[in-house]
Design a protein around this nucleic acid. Sequence first.
DNA 1: CGTTATGTTGACATTAATCAAGCACGGTGG
DNA 2: CCACCGTGCTTGATTAATGTCAACATAACG
Lengths: 254, 254
Amino acid sequence: MNAQVVSMQDARTRATCSQAFPVADLSSLFARQPVERFAPAQAVFWQGDEATHIFEVTVGMLRALRLLGDGRRIIVGFLRPGDLLGVSLKERYLYTVEAVSSVELRRFPRRRFEDEVARHSNLQQQLFSRLRDEMTAAQDQAVLLSRRSAEEKLANFFLLMGQNQNCKQTSIVDLPMTRLDIADYLGMTIETVSRTITKLANSGVIATPERRSVTVLKMETLRSLADGDESDYWTPSPYRVRSMHPPVFEGGGA
Amino acid sequence: MNAQVVSMQDARTRATCSQAFPVADLSSLFARQPVERFAPAQAVFWQGDEATHIFEVTVGMLRALRLLGDGRRIIVGFLRPGDLLGVSLKERYLYTVEAVSSVELRRFPRRRFEDEVARHSNLQQQLFSRLRDEMTAAQDQAVLLSRRSAEEKLANFFLLMGQNQNCKQTSIVDLPMTRLDIADYLGMTIETVSRTITKLANSGVIATPERRSVTVLKMETLRSLADGDESDYWTPSPYRVRSMHPPVFEGGGA
DNA sequence: CGTTATGTTGACATTAATCAAGCACGGTGG
DNA sequence: CCACCGTGCTTGATTAATGTCAACATAACG
């Protein structure tokens, strides 16, 4: 199978000592670890490095990026306080993580992390939950990149960045990353990012008082530009009538 | 935290009865379930449905798609034998899954699935591993969609579809899905898909003897068109063979 | 202050989307 | 068996959008 199995104890062993030291949540694992600081543009780890640690962000923002063979740079996500990095990895890090702003984080050895998680069922639950959230985010990015116009992408991006960890929307959106970061995240060029922001500002949907933040003036307009995506308002009925092909054999047969 | 927690037993309870019935692997959970058949275009479940079951594909291909508010259709992945779907753990499926070809699969109640996984540490390992693979797949799609030209996208797509579950490349690539499916997966139009395939065929990189398959004539050229992507070329050897688990496809969330 | 990174704007080129027509194949019914 | 559709696919002409190249503006930094 793969490497982390060797770090997991046999189930019987685990059962005997399980819950000896209950751990409230994943974050509490990191609480006693020393804080590490990273300056903007400093890397935490590189794509291809051996994945020895899990990290929890406490302050600041980071970018996760992949470098392609021809030098192109693709940002696969931005990380904020409360986010973990390194949980979804195998033996090696799949991407480079660099600080965008000044960052503080704590690290925890991966082996020990997996060990603790294996010991405590509540941690398992939380880890699954995190993985699922991460997966949803990755898929949302794929949806974001699919077929949307520059305007739609930016509108979505502002809404995404405008929601804090508790999912509440704020009208002033902090953008600590550069235009190049945004471009590499949305799959477009800096020029198009810049032009589109200008266009949105000219049409009064947003204002750009500072370089690294935007203020949303017309939230509803922005939402309608962002359009169909995001949010769970799957209209129950009208989509259902799709299969033109005759249903052949259904149900639990065979 | 969320719904599945209620289906999980308390850790102590679980510990007392753990390993009473060891289960070899995730697939064996499905082995005794009846086979269900689905005709092409028939849906297995819809986006927004309550996520009551986990499925394992045994034969055929399916597509996982999301419908946007304005009617656009985005295919977030294709599923093949060995893939799981619906593992995602939240209350509702994130997307619709439909059969592309004739499909056979087995279903397993989600509650029981989670229960079994919680009970057996080896299943947990496997599930984590699958989730990790799926994460990678979702990120790969994001990379694929980022900034690539039509030619690069198609080249990557053929390479992706040309590798079977054991990651071996075959030179004849089966394409059971329609051009529209490909277009909605790669974020382009059917016309561009068609034109690009024609172009690749004219330049002798591939041949298209049948409508639903292509033969790769110049694998190296195709790879160089696909370019830097598909990550694992910066890691020396053991990477290609890392995972014996096919990716999981996840359906819950939101 | 001068120098460098970052961001904006303009002119132009290129790509892919759109609109539209026609082809190829499979199925149906005469 | 063949004519007729319908669907999926291909191809062409045109348009709209974004990328590219280049100049300049502005903020950041020593």
